[in-house]
Design a protein around this nucleic acid. Sequence first.
DNA 1: GTCTAATCGAGACGGTACGTCTCGTCTTCAC
DNA 2: GTGAAGACGAGACGTACCGTCTCGATTAGAC
Lengths: 205, 205, 205, 205
Amino acid sequence: MQSRTPASRTGRPRSAAADTAILAATRAALVELGWSKLTLGDVATRAGVAKTTLYRRWAGKNELVVDAVAELFDELELPDRGTLAADIEGVVLQFAAILARPEAKSGLMAVVAESVRDDALRERIRASIVERQKRLVLEGRSRAQARGELPPEASPEEAARTVDLIFDIVAGAVVHRTLVSSEPADEEWVRGFTRVLLLGLAGAA
Amino acid sequence: MQSRTPASRTGRPRSAAADTAILAATRAALVELGWSKLTLGDVATRAGVAKTTLYRRWAGKNELVVDAVAELFDELELPDRGTLAADIEGVVLQFAAILARPEAKSGLMAVVAESVRDDALRERIRASIVERQKRLVLEGRSRAQARGELPPEASPEEAARTVDLIFDIVAGAVVHRTLVSSEPADEEWVRGFTRVLLLGLAGAA
Amino acid sequence: MQSRTPASRTGRPRSAAADTAILAATRAALVELGWSKLTLGDVATRAGVAKTTLYRRWAGKNELVVDAVAELFDELELPDRGTLAADIEGVVLQFAAILARPEAKSGLMAVVAESVRDDALRERIRASIVERQKRLVLEGRSRAQARGELPPEASPEEAARTVDLIFDIVAGAVVHRTLVSSEPADEEWVRGFTRVLLLGLAGAA
Amino acid sequence: MQSRTPASRTGRPRSAAADTAILAATRAALVELGWSKLTLGDVATRAGVAKTTLYRRWAGKNELVVDAVAELFDELELPDRGTLAADIEGVVLQFAAILARPEAKSGLMAVVAESVRDDALRERIRASIVERQKRLVLEGRSRAQARGELPPEASPEEAARTVDLIFDIVAGAVVHRTLVSSEPADEEWVRGFTRVLLLGLAGAA
DNA sequence: GTCTAATCGAGACGGTACGTCTCGTCTTCAC
DNA sequence: GTGAAGACGAGACGTACCGTCTCGATTAGAC
């Protein structure tokens, strides 16, 4: 996760339980306090761990929260519902459900905001959250192509570009709906969104 | 903006120049330091103003930054380029250009993150940024309907719902592209995005 | 004491009460905890003052304790008891009484130890404790000379040298008796010490 | 020294070299860093030893430093120079020379200060430093009595009292001169001090 | 031309969290 | 069983900002 188990062979090994406890405590603190009032000292106390232990493993609040939040998204999956529209609706609803949880809401936008001025942090977010979930788009497209709902892509470059675009549209829309508009991304909204995504503004009307 | 000029009639009036200087100093500090390292003491110093003066006018960092960032979006406009696609491309490019500026990048996501746990702040953001710019969607749709590119909406409720949806999709996609994917929302990307928005995934391929 | 009231005319003035409370709290903490367990955070709490207030006025633990202890010695005086021997016994007993107080015991040797590697601290100790109390030696000698118990000194340099020597002998002996030998410098001991000081080893026997 | 070689017969024996290395490292650290910045972790590193090893042999910083410093004073001796005055001058100069070394300066006063609130430490200091060096006073007096410079003492109690008094005066004066007045206890000063000690204030003038 | 009251600058105030340091203990592996 | 290595819980360090407060010194409108 954060340590690459570098070289040390000797000495007391790091407690694996501490990592788990710290990440859980971080999520609990996000729920109770939100990002800006979350303090590492408090997280350490909640986890039953000394501050030093925490700092030995994470560089700071940002890195810790990225790891704590990233775990939330690993439960996403793409169940086969038979049509592209249904597949999209299903995964978007799952994504919306995760984003509706206060620990995700509180933490995610905050670390994205911090990442504006911190390249390493941005890369960490990208690697542990964004790229990790693009698998869903790839799989959905494969299925749709197998069903004949989407044509095969012209070239690998074009394919990659389209995956990125779709991810930006889907993730962006759900995040904006949830956090900025502050309205629930419920079934009705997801249906409307999916119609526009598949058919376009004109076709959806 | 922030003061409702409550009741006082007598006494020394507040300096109007101070407001301007403070907002400008806030943007400058956002550019140099980013959200998390921006301090109100530093903003006050930059603006040549005492901390007291600043706190007399804004409740805190969040409110100040919302006001400082909101001004950036007022320069958006919807030039008539003849077709819906061209109109959309034009305004999305403008939006992307603003979001590319460091003071917007740094500040916007941060206040959105803060707003998760602060209703008043969320309302302030909605009123002074989101709702204010929905005019662009409304105007674009009117023009498209006048040109016959879009059908008239079925009902006022449906119309409002669609405006919100489009705004979430457009703003969300540009923000995600810019801040999370950290890639430029340049002309090529905007063209691809507009095609999907108008024609849908299938139609765009 | 610690601030030379430099130049500032504007701004909120420093609370004079805080100084008093902090020095008193320092002595109380010395009594309860001793030097090595005394923490500035605790002193601040005892004084009902923020840590920042304390650090704004003193550079650290050493300087604070010097000031807190120095005040103890200001109550020393040289009552006229009629003979040089009686005068010496009187002032030595007073000095011993102060040194017997735990706040003096705990603090004094510790700051002297620190001063070994800190020129500014050594100078502060010298100015606010040592030189300040040499007045007692000077006055005692004047009286003894007026009474004819001591001859007038040969030269000013010789006079200064003798004052320093006497101070080293008197202060050193009392400190060593009290802190190192850890025996009380009571009347009997003071009588013996004074006899040696006045008559020498041979004469005293 | 610190271990009473309790009972263990089996297992790997403790390295004797480690003790020597640790005490030497302690003195080196005292010279470089002084008492307050000396850390046991650093001493262990300097000695090429693990912290565990150090804590197995000494209870803490205080005890370690006492042992490290005590060794310095074992080189004191009382050469027979023919007269009491010359003998005193000789040993006082030796004592001053040791006290002038930074490891003694830094460490001695600090442990004395700590001993104010730590009976075991005070006893350790007394046993390994103070009482050990009183032999010098005893021997000096014997010689002086043999030469007829000092009368035989009236009683054993009186004798012990006088030895303690002289030790407090001599050690106290040299320490005060060196550490508090921060002036060298050089030959000239020692001559003046010895004259007062032998003849008294009046006789010395 | 005062009077009056809210403003302004400056900066000290009580707090809180920071990230670092050292403490003395504990846990592992190697000898 | 000792030794080096190093993680551990604990807690103080000195700093930085927070948002409030107390100052004396402007300012402008009301009288």
